[in-house]
């Protein structure tokens, strides 16, 4: 089966270990996806404006964006290393954009039969912060395994 593993946030090892207890990845074709949230930097800027003519400096915004992309690359590299250690040949995918939309699009492109979702804000989701996974579960074209 084709499995798309969508990492959420930085806790790669925790998510991988949880999923590996349920699924024997060696028997399947696996891709590991990390989405760099494109809205974070503009949101940081919007949060500072609040009706005043001011904003973050463009150089600082570019720095923030670069840091996010670098962190994304590291997350993918760590996940692939874990997979290799477990004897799984996985493919790493790094994308940027609006996370739920990118996850769904990548699932279609990859032809995913199972979608594994990590959760970034286990405590907050649905209460304070909006839910990526809720949106994906609603719209997913295939089976979804949601990690808690």
């Amino acid at each position: 089966m084709r499995i798309l593993f969508c990492l959420a946030g930085q806790r790669v090892e925790e998510q991988w270990a949880k999923a590996a207890r349920l699924v024997d990845f060696r028997a399947h074709e696996v891709a590991i996806l990390h989405v760099v949230d494109e809205s974070l930097v503009p949101a940081a800027d919007a949060a500072q404006r609040r009706g005043l003519p001011r904003g973050l400096r463009p150089e600082r915004e570019a720095e923030m964006q670069r840091a996010l992309e670098q962190a994304g690359q590291e997350v993918i590299a760590r996940a692939l290393a874990m997979a290799r250690e477990a004897g799984v040949e996985a493919q790493g995918i790094l994308r940027s954009g609006h996370p739920p939309a990118v996850i769904l699009e990548t699932a279609r492109q990859f032809g995913a039969e199972v979608l594994i979702l990590g959760r970034q804000h286990p405590g907050l989701e649905g209460r304070i912060l909006g839910g990526v996974s809720r949106f994906v579960v609603d719209q997913a074209p295939c089976t979804v395994l949601l990690l808690r």
Binding site: S39, L40, A47, P99, F135
Partner: peptide, 8 residues
């Protein structure tokens, strides 16, 4: 379906 962070 657009996620709007300022709302958080």
């Amino acid at each position: 379906g657009l996620k709007v962070r300022p709302l958080d």
